[in-house]
Amino acid sequence: MAKTQLSDSDFKKLVRQSNLVISESDEKTIRPQLSEALSAVRVLDELDTKNVPTLDHPTGDLKNVWREDVVEPSLPQDLALSQAHEQHDGYVVTKAVFDEQ
């Protein structure tokens, strides 16, 4: 079975992709646990899935579930904003996605 070892740079990349902050002491526990789990799940390689389709919806046959394109009541703006940490003129204030000028 393939052994997966997460290198230091793999781990750092994964932390960034996961949008998490992991302390150095947490990395010491989490990194080997992840490597172990990623190796353990490869037990699935014992099963032949050549030409087997994926099962994406357990009971099968729901596809393209649409509704009529009509306006229906939705969450009022003040309620939608009620839990936001910061608001401005009816908008939620977020951190800038791009670097500020």
Binding site: L14, S18, L20, I30, A37, L38, L44, V52, L55, D56
Partner: peptide, 27 residues
């Protein structure tokens, strides 16, 4: 945190077929 990271790895480009797609076929 552990679950988010493992899932992010399994869905990432390059590993998707070996992990997520394989798992969905086993399903």
């Amino acid at each position: 945190k552990r679950r988010i990271m493992l899932g992010t790895y399994a869905l990432s480009s390059g590993y998707y077929d070996a992990y997520y797609k394989k798992a969905q076929a086993v399903r």
